[in-house]
């Protein structure tokens, strides 16, 4: 392995230190990050391809996949609209309580996933605020799909807004003002100037938001009730199979999520590499 500092020539003792540091870092990355990832695929295919395919084609797995997609398809667009609205208000206007709003947007990141689920149980559960009313009207939120969607929205709420706010802050509002002076209506300004300027950051935010929405476990676990085929998303299906000692089945379904993670990482890296300046400096994303 060849290590070299950017420009100046260095003596061999320092070279040894560099190579040593690099080796320690890489060994850590391999043992600690790469190995768990590899385990997932190795365990999934332990008994060959046929059991793997069979594990995924079980009806429970298929319904879990469908439910995961449904939850993401509802939660992600809602958080995109929220993210754009919040970023627009935060970066284009001055108003009292702006800092508070910013802290509020970040709040879901510093709350334990279990608590994120818990709050909805306390709100809509049988003993919750709206529990009796919901029961009287025969509406089910907790232990049903709406609860899963709500908990997922809560968990993934900051992603899009947090990508957009620093970028729109650094871009400033001159281009939008120019569009107004040139006669553009509000929506023309938004679709012809604002949106093209933030498109890559938006995609980046959507990517992270979606990965989290599909992979969320703790919050969803609390509100799901674990009804097989009805309220289990892929991560919950993984848990149930694992607890039933169906390891091949658990890792087979988990491999789908691991694949999603790999695709997310690949697209994310590509976006950072290709459109780095249009995504802007952002804080590390995500809980």
């Amino acid at each position: 392995m060849s290590a070299r500092m950017a420009s100046r020539p260095i003596g061999w003792p320092r070279r040894v230190v560099h190579v040593g540091l690099i080796l320690v870092a890489l060994i850590f990355l391999v043992l600690f990050l790469l190995l768990p990832l590899a385990t997932v695929f190795v365990e999934a295919f332990r008994e060959g391809i046929a059991p793997y395919v069979a594990a995924i084609r079980q009806p429970e797995a298929l319904s879990a996949i469908r439910l995961t997609l449904i939850v993401a398809v509802i939660a992600v667009p809602l958080n995109v609209v929220f993210g754009i609205a919040a970023a627009w208000a935060m970066t284009r206007f001055e108003f009292r309580g702006k800092a508070l709003l910013g802290a509020l947007i970040d709040l879901p990141f510093s709350v334990s996933p279990v608590i994120s689920g818990l709050v909805y149980v306390l709100l809509f559960g049988a003993q919750g605020w709206f529990g009796p009313w919901l029961e009287a009207h025969d509406i089910k939120i907790i232990f049903a799909v709406p609860g899963l969607v709500l908990a997922t929205i809560f968990i993934t709420l900051p992603f899009v807004a947090r990508e957009l706010i620093p970028l729109m802050q650094s871009q400033g509002s001159e281009e939008e003002e120019a569009a107004r002076v040139l006669g553009a209506s509000g929506w023309q300004m938004f679709f012809r100037v604002t949106l093209p300027n933030i498109r890559w950051a938006l995609l980046y935010g959507v990517l992270l938001c979606n990965a989290r929405a599909m992979g969320e476990f703790g919050a969803v676990s609390v509100v799901s009730g674990h009804i097989r085929g009805l309220t289990t998303t892929i991560p919950l299906e993984v848990e149930m199979r694992y607890n039933e000692y169906d390891y091949v089945g658990a890792f087979a379904v988990a491999s789908l999520l691991a694949l999603l993670a790999l695709v997310t990482l690949a697209v994310k890296t590509l976006l950072e590499w290709r459109y780095g300046d249009e995504i802007a400096a952002h804080a590390p994303g995500g809980h």
Partner: peptide, 18 residues
């Protein structure tokens, strides 16, 4: 602003970068 029939050149030009 959009009905004032004004042409404005901004300090940093504010050209649409895309």
């Amino acid at each position: 602003a959009r009905e004032r029939r004004i042409g404005m050149v901004f300090q940093h030009y504010a050209l649409f970068r895309h």
